[in-house]
């Protein structure tokens, strides 16, 4: 027996809608689960007090500071390096064997699991270079991890800049570098920044890399060579060792809110950029 196409069309449409609805439901459920369980424990004191009794009491201020410092180190290194790579790939070279190799390297690096970055950072920064478990080791390892994200997004943004911007600048006698800095980069800036913001998000989410390279000290870090924990690591330890469910939920809620703000900012920036392009 053959089912008429009009019926299969209806069945298909309903099932596909349901599939998509369930994916979105999963997102809403994850966020809702954490916020409902955690927001009621998030107070001003929780955000501004030191971690006491391994996290059973007190707040998460050292973890917040640790997160900010580590992101600062990671992005401080990955952003200039990544944007420079993207400028080279988009503006300074023709497609060929060399770019293919570089692109292959970037793609492979993007696929390397975070635990491998953790092992690498541990052996190179913590042990060999003697930085110990520290913010600097954690930041450097995170920088290696987020580099591909920043390069790819920045290159895409620069490629989207219309040709005539470059032609006009060049015809006015600008050098290649002037073309890049005065004509291409200003136009591509929102896209480039989107990549940087996504890199910040990735750094904040990451646990495996940080735990092996920055350790998990509960004290407030006093220098970049101190061990520190990020919010993700703090949450992981609280949850895994069953130290305090309330504080775990609360930390997760702070973490999720931060991630939401970062991702929504990145997305709206990208979206505005696209819409601006279409209008122009």
């Amino acid at each position: 027996m053959r089912i008429p196409p009009s019926i299969t069309q209806k069945i298909a449409k309903i099932s596909l809608t349901l599939a998509c609805a369930s994916a979105v439901a999963a997102l809403v459920f994850v966020i809702g689960f954490v916020l409902v369980g955690g927001l009621k424990h998030v107070t001003w004191a929780f955000l501004t007090e030191p971690i006491l009794d391994m996290g059973r009491a007190g707040g998460i201020l050292p973890a917040i500071v640790g997160t900010i410092l580590m992101v600062f180190v990671a992005i401080g290194i990955a952003a200039p390096l990544g944007i420079a790579s993207a400028i080279y790939l988009a503006e300074y070279t023709q497609e060929g064997k060399v770019t293919q190799t570089i692109r292959f390297g970037i793609n492979c690096l993007a696929g390397v699991p975070s635990i491998i970055f953790g092992l690498f950072g541990f052996i190179l920064f913590v042990v060999m270079l003697g930085f110990g478990w520290s913010i600097i080791s954690g930041g450097l390892s995170l920088a290696a991890m987020v580099l591909p994200t920043i390069i790819r997004t920045a290159e895409e943004a620069m490629r989207a800049v219309p040709r005539n911007y470059r032609d006009v600048a060049a015809s006015l006698g600008a050098t290649r570098w002037q073309v890049v800095t005065r004509a291409v980069l200003p136009y591509a800036l929102p896209g480039v920044l989107t990549g940087v913001i996504l890199g910040i998000g990735r750094s904040i989410e990451e646990t495996a890399v940080v735990i092996f390279t920055a350790g998990s000290a509960v004290q407030m870090p006093r220098s970049l060579f101190d061990s520190a924990r990020t919010m993700s690591v703090h949450f992981y330890i609280l949850a895994r060792e069953g130290i305090s469910n309330d504080n775990a939920y609360a930390t997760a809620a702070v973490l999720i809110c931060t991630i939401l703000v970062i991702n929504i900012t990145a997305y709206t920036m990208m979206h505005r950029l696209m819409r601006g392009r279409r209008a122009a």
Binding site: L81, A84, S85, Y88, G105, C108, L119, I123, W177
Partner: peptide, 27 residues
């Protein structure tokens, strides 16, 4: 000047491969 910048950017672009190689080497 432009040549120098071009070299510098090329070195930056190679960083991904360098990191990948370092990771493989150490592991």
């Amino acid at each position: 000047m432009d040549r120098f910048i071009s070299k510098l950017l090329f070195i930056a672009a190679c960083s991904s491969i360098a990191i990948l190689a370092l990771i493989a080497l150490f592991i």
